[in-house]
Write a protein that binds this DNA or RNA. Sequence first.
DNA 1: CTAGTTATAGACCAACGAGTCTATAAAAAT
DNA 2: ATTTTTATAGACTCGTTGGTCTATAACTAG
Lengths: 213, 213
Amino acid sequence: MKRNKLWRLRTEEYSKAAFETLSEEGLSGTTVEKVAKRAGVSKTNVLHYFGNKARLLEMALRYGNADLAREVSALLIRSNTPWERVYSVIEANFSRQFFTPKIAHAWLSLLAEIPYNPSYQRIQTAIHQRMRSNLMHALEQLAERERAEEVALAISVMIDGLWLRCGLHEGGIGRDTALQQMELLMESLFPSSPARLAAKARIDEIQSILNPG
Amino acid sequence: MKRNKLWRLRTEEYSKAAFETLSEEGLSGTTVEKVAKRAGVSKTNVLHYFGNKARLLEMALRYGNADLAREVSALLIRSNTPWERVYSVIEANFSRQFFTPKIAHAWLSLLAEIPYNPSYQRIQTAIHQRMRSNLMHALEQLAERERAEEVALAISVMIDGLWLRCGLHEGGIGRDTALQQMELLMESLFPSSPARLAAKARIDEIQSILNPG
DNA sequence: CTAGTTATAGACCAACGAGTCTATAAAAAT
DNA sequence: ATTTTTATAGACTCGTTGGTCTATAACTAG
């Protein structure tokens, strides 16, 4: 069991295939065979790398998060102010490539299994924890700790809720509505803050340069 | 196939059993047999009433919503002002009996299937539509239509997000945190509004009378 | 170049689950 | 009271699925 280049390559490939299958077929419709077929290999081979289905889906969860994490990082390293860091988290979560019903479906499918699988639970906890941490680092410089805590929670809960809606009604909520909702929240939480608005504008611009369309 | 008293009784019983099974076993762990066993009858009998598993789960979804709808109604009919109606929707959604990880799990399980089943989709759309409608009737008397629309969406998205979190991390978010988050949102959206705060207090009181504990 | 290791696939197996068939008990209708 | 309908269950079927066993091809190390 040597973790070669090949090993990493295959696990990445198959995790991706699993994530995509999940998004198209739902949890009940996702079988090891289908994932293998989508990746153009045999079911046995997929099992060879992951051992069992649970670990395959676990890696699919990680895979889906990795994309998002990269997007966040890309914006975060270009941020110079606390407000810019806050908006990095927000914008990354609603990036045009990622905030789509397809991907939201995959998320939903995985989320539904989390309560019944401690392993998924740990991963998801880590994901939420990181989002919270990113927000807190920024918000602590903008408000007292207590308030920063509840604002961070509000932001991340709202993000979750918008993803949920995105996956639920096809064509109901898209990037624009989502960002508008986030802005309604931010403007209410921190009214008339020029620094905030400047940061929003800058991150918005960076985002549209990094990821045009 | 006469829809007798017995018919309604059984469908109600079995829908409930399905909902509970869902919450304890998750979607993948929910089988017709388990639901039947929980209801103390044979699998055949359950199938006799529902025809197939999809319709059983569909009724489970309706069942779960019926409870919530009753709770909302109970508060709504006792409301006298727009603000009270807004808080009726909010409080009902975080009632002590309903806002529990168990129930949130069942919801999550069903939500994950919605994108892949038009029938569930219609039901869920109706549910969201009714929440929106309840909120809009009240909010239109408190703000311009445009603003009412986006505020109604913000409120319901936040409610969804809090339910999601409740189901995700056991012991993470409970009724208190949830209501505190909703209040953060409402206070930010409508700062220093005595009428709003009075309404909140009244509905809170009514709720704790209707549903003590 | 050879020996061992890794990658990949095909056939197979055992479990399980949804739904049907058949039979009988209960109830309703005539 | 008898006949028809409804309710319930047990046995069974058939497809699916996760996972294993076995075989072979490809690659790596010495």
